[in-house]
Write a protein that binds this DNA or RNA. Sequence first.
DNA 1: CAGTATCCGATGCGATACTG
DNA 2: CAGTATCGCATCGGATACTG
Lengths: 237, 237
Amino acid sequence: MGPKISYGQYCPLAMSSEFLCNRWTLLVLRELLLGSTSFNDIGRGVPRMSRTLLSSRLKELVEIGILAKQKSRKNTSSHYELTESGQALGPVVMSLAGWGQQWLEVEPSLKNFDTDVLMWDIRRNTKPFDELPDPFIVHFCLTDVPENESDYWLVFEKGHVDLCHIDESFKVDVELVVSVRKLTKVWMGWEDFSTAVADGSLTLDGPKKYTSIAEKWLGHSSVAHIKKNPPERRVNY
Amino acid sequence: MGPKISYGQYCPLAMSSEFLCNRWTLLVLRELLLGSTSFNDIGRGVPRMSRTLLSSRLKELVEIGILAKQKSRKNTSSHYELTESGQALGPVVMSLAGWGQQWLEVEPSLKNFDTDVLMWDIRRNTKPFDELPDPFIVHFCLTDVPENESDYWLVFEKGHVDLCHIDESFKVDVELVVSVRKLTKVWMGWEDFSTAVADGSLTLDGPKKYTSIAEKWLGHSSVAHIKKNPPERRVNY
DNA sequence: CAGTATCCGATGCGATACTG
DNA sequence: CAGTATCGCATCGGATACTG
């Protein structure tokens, strides 16, 4: 019942690749696995993907049966969630991401990427916790991007975290000044947080009780625990 | 130094996907991981891929550094082998193949595939062993394919196994009559070998001492040990 | 917010033919 | 055996504009 089989192989790898190795599909899956459920949230994780294509990919995944779509009765919002088989792709995605984390040289990764993806990714992995006030607001000042992309605010409030890109006259608790390059490295676990603070490439400004636990509220990428190989053993894409 | 980054994400999954999720790449990698080292052997595992493209993919993999190419001094043959980072992709490929083996409905897999891939795959996983004479020759008669594709000979000899597609007047030890569909199912572990023999859909003709250990010399796919879900929990691509 | 319709340009890839 | 060169089509997917 599926679309045309183009590889012409019964092999499960070939069959899986038929639909998983289309452009953007794995990244959409990543968003779903990490918990995004709405069209726009998913889309925000893949900003360079056209909405047209996102729409068609989601439809395809639903058709295949690894994704399910629920429409609210008001028809105003919809809700995607992975089915059992979709959830089962978690280890597959992690395995590929883990390989990249371990083997890929970092420089190519740091070239030409959207700041928005990073900030959105950070937001996703954060949660308010007891030591923080409510609200708790962090102002990110990114030093190596055009002025209009340089400011972000992370708002920890009422059990969840929002990301803002425009100044709403926040009462800022901590100001964090850092380059996107450095922030990425630290967040991905490619460099030590404490080292970055020590050498001044990452600056924290605010009450000590909050800045001292910065690594805790900033968090890390979900693959940060996987150690990258030393440079001479990395792959240079 | 790499090619253009099209996803625009530092994420290791995105970076890995940039080159691993191109058409055919994962299947080429599978061939390499399973031990093929020459251009033609690799190509035989992906018959629908054009040689032009295979050549360019191999070159790309070499450039990236997950594959190494050795030329013999005679320049007459060359030799590909995975580097350390390429070997490390083994679990990634297995993970994806494993997902497919567990979750994919079988019918789509059985439509429109090249018999050659199956036979080549079987050959790869076989080895002579003590209970077999040298040479030991099996004649495969495939019942559900055009006449000119229906006959194969597996020749166990001097420590390795050859696959032939033209009759060289072999002294056949065992003749195996079966449909490609059934052979695939049995070989992939989707159905029991013994059941197929019992219900007559797979016929063995030859000395009992060889036919009785048929499952041993025929072997199984490397993912056959992973159990497929019951039909109602499968994905229908 | 959650998409769809249409257009059209790039490029990916297969087919074919050729080389050392 | 191990490729490369060239051609040309098809499809993929981005951009833009529009809808409920």
